[in-house]
Structures are given as C-alpha cells and as structure tokens.
Simulated scan of single mutants.
Amino acid sequence: MSVIFPQYSSRMLLAPLVPLLRSLFGGALNTVLTLLAVLMLALILPPLLHWAVTDAVFSGTQEECRQAAGACWAFVQAKARFILFAFYPSEALWRPILVIALLLGMMVASALPRFWGMRLILGWPLMLALAWWLMAGGWGLAKVSLNSWGGLPVTLLVWSTCMIFAFPAAVLLALARQSRMAGLRLLAVAYIEVMRAIPMVAILYFAMLILPMALPQGVILDKLIRATILIALFWTAYLAEVVRGGLQTIGPGQAEAAQSLGLGYWRLIQLVVLPQALRRVIPGLVNLGIGFLLATSLLAVIGAFDLLNTARASTTDQQWLGFYNEAYIFAAVIYFLLCFAGSRYSLWLEARLQRG
C-alpha cells in the first residue's frame, strides 16, 4: 500500500500537465517552436531583469539614476501623481480619486448580471453627471478648469461617457439599418458608412478646429467636451455594425412566433431579439470596448492630457529629462490591467451565458 500510494499521487499531480506538454511538444513543429520560444526568452529575460530589477534605482535623485545602468523607478515615484492626475490642484485631489473609484465601481456592477436592470440603466447617467460635477466643481465645490484635468480620470471619464451614450444609440442605429422603412434605412446606412470612412484623428481635429465655428454665437464648449461628443457619435457607427451582426443571426421564425403571441415590435425586440443578439456578439463588443479605451490616447492630438499624454509630458520636466521608458511602462501597465480585466471578463460572461 505504501508503494502504490506515491505512484497514484504522482500521476494525479502530473495529469493536469499532460495537455500542456502535448501542446508544447506534440509533434516536430510544436517542439521546434517551443525550443525557439525558450531560446528567445533566455536571450531577452536576463538583460531585461538586470535593467528592471537588479541594476534599477527604486528611490533617489536624477543624478543617481543617470549613474545607474538600470531603470529609474525613482522617476515613476516622483512623477506618479502628475501622470495620474496632471495639473489637478493638490488640495482637491480627493475629487479625481473619488471619480476613479466611482467609475470603476460602476464598471464592476455593470459586469455582474445580477445588477442588470433599470436601476443600472438609470444609474449610469447619474453617475457620469456626478463624476463631471466632481471634476469641474461648482454648486458648492471650487471650480477647476478643464485645462487642469488629466491622467487616468480623464481617460476613464471620456471612455465611460462615450460608451454609455454610444451603445444605446448604436442599438437604435442597427435596428434602423434593418428597418423596412427605406428612408430610415438609407439614413442609417449613410451615417454608418460616412463615420467609418473618417479617421478618428480627423474627428478630433474637427472637434478642435471646425466645430467651434459651427456653434451658435455665445455658445462655448471646451475642447474636451467637444471631443467627447464627437467621439461618442464616431463610436456609435462601429458599435452599430457589431450589434447588426448579432441581429442578423436571429431567424425570422422567432419574430413571427412572438408576433403570433401578440407581442408588439418593441416588446419583441426587448424580450426576444436583443437578448439573443447581444449574447452572440459579446466578443466583438468587448474587443471594441478595449480598442476604444486605447483609442482615448489620441486625445493627445488636441492637447488633452489623457493618461498617455501625461506620461509623455512628465518626461519634459527639467529635473527628470529623458526617462521615457519608465514613463511609458507605467502607463502601459495601467492600460494592460484595464484591458486584461476586460478580456477575462468577456470569457467569464460567455461561459456563464452559455450555461444559462
């Protein structure tokens, strides 16, 4: 018995590794690719670890960093506040911190199916209004100019605002493109094709240079607000095509069956069509959401201080010149954590809805 038990336990421990070993060494091609990957890691990882850890400076001055052969994480420690919050006043720093916490909390609540419902639909516009008020001030809070905004709050606030208003509009636009009304369908097709044919950079330049001249006299909108409005309209076209792809997977038989039960058009869409269509395009929606989050970095072209632009601007400090790698790595880690969380959530939600 003492001889059999160790053999049984070792087999149990090695059993989960069998599929991995087969995928790595199952066949000549897989074996060669695995060995090449190991060789590349052996060439890349040691010098990278020396630069990032062994020879790095984690605290100190610029002079100490310039004398060292590794990374200057002391720069990140000194400039982290600027990268995350830009020029926002120090005495009011609790406001952008609270905005980040509120937005991330709403995102987590939106990710859990048990919170889905009318309260969440109504909660997002109220939360966004609260976030914009906290950042801008007024009504009891000291006003802060939009020129002082920057960093992670701007990235999350612009992305959340655009997505929350673009998604419902995209659903309506996708339904309009499939409508039997020729005029409505033509307008939807024209809007989608025109928007998808324009680069986002051109949209931002339009918001920066042309839109102010088109506004009525006396109406002044900050460049960040103008950019947010046009980005939401731009993203609507892309989301509408993804939603339309899901709508096309629903056969006409279900609609006919629902109509035979007395359901009207909007109840049919709400109860039968949209739940199935959106479930089938979850990967596409998450992929677009991640891409849109990264696309907020293009706000730099109009001088808005999003997270990536504050990371770049932090390297222009006369006391900390030249530490571009550390600044961009810090920003990249934040982007990666947000995007990786979104991708893992997509896999979890797909599996959960499949079981449902």
Score class of each variant (00 low, 15 high):
I4S: 12
S9L: 11
S9K: 11
R11P: 04
M12S: 05
L13D: 13
A15G: 10
L20P: 04
L39F: 11
H50E: 15
A52P: 04
V53I: 15
G60R: 03
G70T: 01
A71I: 03
F87C: 02
W94F: 13
I100V: 15
A111C: 09
P113T: 10
F115A: 06
F115N: 09
W116C: 08
L120P: 00
P125V: 15
M127P: 03
L128S: 05
W132R: 03
W133P: 02
W133F: 12
A136R: 15
G138I: 00
G138P: 01
W139I: 06
G140H: 15
L141E: 12
V144I: 15
V144R: 14
V144M: 13
V158G: 01
S160F: 07
S160P: 08
T161Y: 07
C162R: 01
L173H: 00
M181P: 05
V189M: 13
V189H: 14
M195R: 04
I198V: 10
I203C: 06
I203H: 02
A214T: 10
A214D: 09
L215K: 08
Q217W: 11
K223Y: 07
A227V: 10
V242R: 01
V243F: 08
G245N: 06
Q248A: 10
I250N: 08
P252N: 09
G253W: 01
A258M: 05
L261G: 01
L268G: 04
Q270R: 13
V272K: 01
V273H: 03
L278E: 01
R280G: 03
V281A: 03
G289R: 02
I290N: 01
L293F: 14
A295N: 13
S297Q: 05
L307I: 07
L307Q: 00
A313P: 10
T316P: 02
Q319H: 15
G322W: 02
Y328M: 14
V333D: 10
Y335T: 02
L338K: 12
S343C: 10
S343Y: 14
Y345Q: 14
E350N: 07
R352F: 05
R352V: 04
G356C: 10
